[in-house]
């Protein structure tokens, strides 16, 4: 019989043991806020189909301070998602070559954030034009 008795360590609570993993769990956790926002939009289109009275009640709820505060929290989670998404992007993209030299990781991250700012301004401008 073999005298070998390899010891396997448990993984319980691994995400608490390293600041890098804590940050990872936090940015993965932004998914709950993305889901919450998707559900709010989903509820909105459903309520919209139930007529003007139902919509106005829903609108009252959306305008309540509690709901606006909740959206501020969701907004913070979305902003953190944007930052972490573009922060990991240099690790997920194939090397990008410009004139034979590799684009730096920081350039990719800040390029992504700049694209987000531009896209957001365009969306905001379109929406502002849609306002009556």
């Amino acid at each position: 019989m073999s005298a070998r008795r390899p010891y396997v360590r448990p993984m319980t609570g691994w995400w608490r043991k390293n600041p890098f993993f804590i940050e990872y769990m936090v940015h993965e956790g932004t998914a709950f806020f993305v889901a919450a926002y998707a559900l709010i939009l989903l509820a909105s289109v459903v309520v919209l189909g139930q007529g003007e009275a139902a919509w106005n009640r829903w609108l009252e709820f959306l305008m309540s301070p509690l709901c606006i505060i909740a959206h501020v929290v969701i907004l913070l989670a979305f902003l953190y998602h944007s930052w972490t998404w573009f922060n990991i992007m240099p690790r997920t993209l194939p090397p990008i070559l410009i004139n034979g030299t590799r684009v730096k990781a920081a350039t990719i991250t800040y390029g992504g954030l700049a694209a987000a700012v531009i896209a957001s301004l365009i969306v905001f401008a379109i929406v502002a034009r849609l306002a009556p």
Binding site: L59, L62, L75, A116, A119, V123, V127
Partner: peptide, 17 residues
Amino acid sequence: SALIGPVLVFITGIAAP
């Protein structure tokens, strides 16, 4: 969501309401 998620939340959940 990384590109335009924040601005959508801001428009529909904060700015307009």
